[in-house]
Design a protein around this nucleic acid. Structure first.
Length: 875
DNA sequence: CGTGTCACG
DNA sequence: ACGTACGTGACACGG
């Protein structure tokens, strides 16, 4: 056991320091976080640097202390604690709890006194003590065993005061600091001292006489008439000031040094708190920094050169090691495998030549456990290896068990579930420009550890999933889907570069025209794409009325500009410029770059990312190709079948979220509307406005549609007012009428929020969970957001469950029918296929059939489909 | 690398 | 009173 080291922190002082050192940061939930953030930084720094065995954070107790009975105006005239800081204290305390650091406060005493008392106790035991504060007064505690660190500028820079340093800096001993304060006073604590005596005079007097008492004993010897007069007149005040500045070292503290043992943070709780506070950098640091400290146990990985004599078990964990995260493009460096006993690593050269390995992966009887089965499937596919019978996927298991934890690499997941021997990929490969391939031995060990982690984590994760009744969701929905998505990604979508370029040419011409018109109207050239410059032109030079502000200046968002259209003719040109610029940069230029040598775009679907169970699409995103405006919609003409004589086929669920809501809420009227196959928005308008079908105006239908959307999103009067451009009062009236019309929906919304408060999470029909810890928060914003999420997630998530199920069924059906048609894309409520023309009739039959039967609800699911020679024509 | 904006469901 | 509709990803800008 190493020597004891006690760190004592002055909580209030450091919190103030952090608060004023950092700008007033607000996280996106609306709470101020600058002091919490700074405090956390300090804390982590201290823990890293000092490595204490014992630790305490002392807080000031209430308003009055024993010092006030000595001097009523003690700390008088001090600014009240700003409310922006006050609101942050509870979080700092929570954070300390999560770090499992002892906190202490004592009625009538300040943090100083607690620290003084405990540091003296430590001194007496001969233990090393480190005191940390932003208040220089504490330097009086410096001694042989006690060092005092005072924050310098910024938040992590500390000045270390040992008795030697105090002597060097002031020429006095630490204990004389008290005398110094007695003579010169302290403006910040409202300690008066002796008028006319500042730091220089005080130090001079102390160097000569030693203490306040000695100074007064030797008054006659002091030179300087004015000084002598001041000292004489303020004798009582000098002694009182000294008393006030003296830190109590015998305060009646009820804890002892043994109570301060520090055993390290509770990582889970710290992490969830960081997540709550949106401390992204600290979150990332947490996983990488901690791993350095983990003693990495030896691992015995055999690098296989001869794979034909290899023995491969019937169930094995494996990991495909790749240099780049994009498994659709990056080369495999090697494969690690384990059967729970030995661990092997097969370099890619051996993998390529091994018939045995290929047989094992393809074998439908051997079970495969891995970190990311979709990546493994797609990557091995490129090497001509087909994988069958995945039986464990760490990425998906983690996602289902805890969707909020963002999965960066195997190391972080493994760590979270108690297996911490893996280094982060960043540690192994380096990052940024320094990223490079390490030598084979290091790579083999690293990959080997991952396979080992998969093996060890399988039973733990499966148990957890079974406990939560999520095993089926994971094993029968997400796992089979992973492979299907892998196929879709590998297949890719054929993209006609010529069409993109042609549209691009037209866009460029029009953009140039718009640009010169805008410059002329503005009377100068400027960067239209810069919100800052655009704001200055519109609201300062031209003098339009600013409607909304952002953190950094004027808002120039489309909804703002639209309100200004009547004020100046430049606005409509800017709006068009923005719209076309977006098409050009994101879709024409962006997509062109993504076309591979096979003439196709291969997006990747993220299956373990969204909080609701939806997929997302990246590199590029094919789930947000324009459709609403005709000019953008034309982009879809570039997405074409990969073979001559084939067609594109698209099928989408009609109103799937509202149908899910009808089912889940069991609202009679809504169920009836869908059963009768009515236009739901028109029906809503009829009921809400109390008119018959023929009297529903297009405006009424539009309003009803917006309210329906609002209901799905977790309605708020403000949100609806924004979308309809009406007042909040009017919006609230619509909501009230709506909920009175659909009492089942009202009941459901109330129940789901109440249930979420009780359980801490909400579930979809297939038992997908979303945890909502903030639903009980006292912060209005956080709580309201969680409440809306509670209403929205079961709906959006169930819709996601349904289409995932449809994709699995669809894949099986295409196979059963021996069709050539290929599923290419999923866009939340629609599926896009390509197929030979002669399969159209069959697709028209089976696609709607399968999609509509994916899950049985109390309302029918309805699918609409279309086909054509490009994605554009599937309308 | 954070912010603003805008594309989709 | 509080100040937002739910879920995503990509691009340009500017410190």
């Amino acid at each position: 056991m190493s020597k004891e080291k006690i760190v004592l922190l002055d909580g209030n002082s450091l919190a103030y320091r952090a608060f004023f050192a950092l700008p007033l940061l607000t996280n996106d939930s609306g709470i101020h976080t600058n002091a919490i953030y700074g405090f956390t930084m300090m804390l982590q720094n201290i823990l890293n640097e000092e490595k204490p065995t014992h630790m305490l954070v002392a807080w000031d107790a209430g308003k009055t202390t024993f010092r006030h009975s000595t001097f009523g105006e003690y700390k008088g005239g001090r600014q009240k604690t700003p409310p922006e800081l006050s609101e942050q204290f509870p979080y700092m305390r929570k954070l300390l709890d999560a770090f499992q650091i002892t906190q202490y406060e004592l009625d009538q005493y300040e943090a100083d006194d607690i620290i003084g008392t405990l540091s003296k106790a430590g001194d007496a035991k001969g233990v090393e003590v480190v005191v940390i504060s932003g208040d220089k007064d504490l330097t009086q505690l410096a001694s042989e065993h006690t060092t005092v660190c005072i924050t310098r500028k910024g938040i992590t820079d500390l000045e270390v005061y040992t008795p030697a340093h105090v002597m060097e800096k002031y020429g006095i001993t630490p204990i004389q600091i008290i005398d110094m304060k007695g003579l010169m006073g302290d403006a910040s604590d409202n300690i008066p001292g002796v008028p006319g005596v500042g730091e220089k005079t005080a130090l001079k007097l102390l160097k000569e006489y030693g203490s306040v008492e000695k100074v007064y004993e030797s008054l006659d010897l002091i030179s300087g008439k004015k000084l002598k007069e001041n000292l004489t007149l303020n004798e009582d005040q000098a002694f009182m000031s000294k008393k006030l500045a003296t830190i109590e070292v015998e305060a009646p503290v009820t804890i002892t040094i043994d109570d301060l043992q520090y055993k390290g943070p509770d990582e889970e709780t710290v992490k969830s708190l960081y997540e709550e506070l949106k401390f992204k950098t600290l979150l990332e640091k947490m996983s990488s920094a901690d791993e350095v400290d983990v003693p990495v146990e030896k691992i015995d990985v055999r690098i296989e050169q001869d794979t034909e004599s290899l023995h491969l078990a019937d169930a094995m964990a494996f990991h495909i090691e790749m240099y780049d995260e994009n498994y659709l493009a990056s080369d495999i460096t090697g494969i690690s495998m384990t059967d729970g006993e030995s661990i092997i690593y097969i370099p890619i050269e051996q993998v390529k030549q091994s018939a045995k390995l290929k047989e094992w992966f393809g074998n439908t009887n051997t079970k495969k456990y891995t970190t990311d089965s979709k990546a493994a499937y797609a990557a091995l596919m490129r090497y001509g290896i087909e994988v069958n019978n995945f039986d464990f996927d760490l990425l998906l298991a983690t996602y289902i068990a805890s969707p909020s934890s963002s999965y960066t690499d195997v190391a972080s997941v493994a760590k979270e579930f108690g297996y911490s021997a893996i280094e982060s990929d960043e540690t192994i490969y380096g990052k940024g420009a320094k990223k490079k391939l390490p030598e084979e031995r290091i790579l083999a060990d690293h990959a080997g550890r991952k396979a080992q982690a998969v093996w060890k984590l399988k039973p733990i994760m499966e148990k957890k999933l079974r406990e939560n009744e999520q095993f089926e969701l994971y094993h029968e929905l997400e796992m089979p889907l992973a492979k299907i998505l892998g196929k879709m990604e590998s297949t890719g979508v054929k993209t006609d570069l010529g069409i993109l370029q042609q549209i691009g040419l037209e866009l460029s011409t029009r953009l140039a025209e718009l640009e010169s018109i805008i410059y002329e109207m503005a009377g100068q050239t400027f960067n239209i794409n810069s919100p800052k410059q655009l704001g200055e032109i519109l609201f300062e030079k031209i003098g339009l009325t600013p409607i909304k502000k952002t953190k950094t200046g004027y808002s120039t968002a489309a909804d703002v500009l639209e309100k200004l259209e009547s004020e100046h003719e430049i606005i409509s040109f800017i709006l068009t410029y923005r719209q076309l610029g977006k098409l050009n940069s994101t879709y024409i230029e962006g997509l062109s770059k993504e076309i591979h040598s096979d003439g196709k775009i291969h997006t990747r679907f993220q299956q373990a990312l969204t909080q609701t169970g939806r997929l997302s699409s990246i590199n590029p995103n094919l789930q947000n190709i324009p459709i609403r405006l005709e000019e953008g919609r034309k982009i879809r003409a570039a997405f074409v079948p990969s073979e001559p004589g084939w067609i594109m086929y698209a099928a989408d669920y009609s109103q799937i979220e509202l149908r899910v809501l009808a089912h889940m809420s069991q609202d009679e009227k809504m169920i009836a509307a869908f059963r009768d196959d009515e236009d739901i928005h028109t029906k809503t308008a009829m009921d809400v406005f109390g008119v018959d079908k023929d009297s529903v105006s297009s405006d009424m239908r539009r309003t009803a549609k917006a309210v329906n959307f609002g209901i799905v999103y977790g309605i708020s009067d403000y949100g609806l007012s924004q979308s309809l451009n009406i007042t909040r009062k009017e919006a609230q009236k619509f909501i009230d009428t709506y909920l009175a019309t659909f009492p089942g929906v009202k009941q459901y919304m109330e129940d789901i929020v109440a249930d979420a408060k009780l359980k801490g999470y909400v579930v979809t029909m297939m038992n997908r969970r979303r945890y909502l810890p903030e639903i009980t928060s006292s912060n209005f914003n956080l709580r309201s957001f969680a409440e809306r999420t509670a209403m929205n997630t079961p709906i959006q998530g169930t819709a996601a469950d349904i289409i995932k199920k449809a994709m699995i069924d669809m894949d099986a059906r295409l196979k059963a029918e021996k069709m050539e048609a290929k599923m290419l894309l999923q866009v939340h409520d629609e599926l896009i296929f390509e197929a030979p023309e002669h399969e159209i009739a069959m697709l028209n039959k089976i696609v709607p059939e399968v999609m509509e039967a994916a899950l049985e609800l109390d309302v029918p699911l309805k699918v609409e489909s279309a086909y054509g020679l490009s994605w554009y024509e599937t309308k």
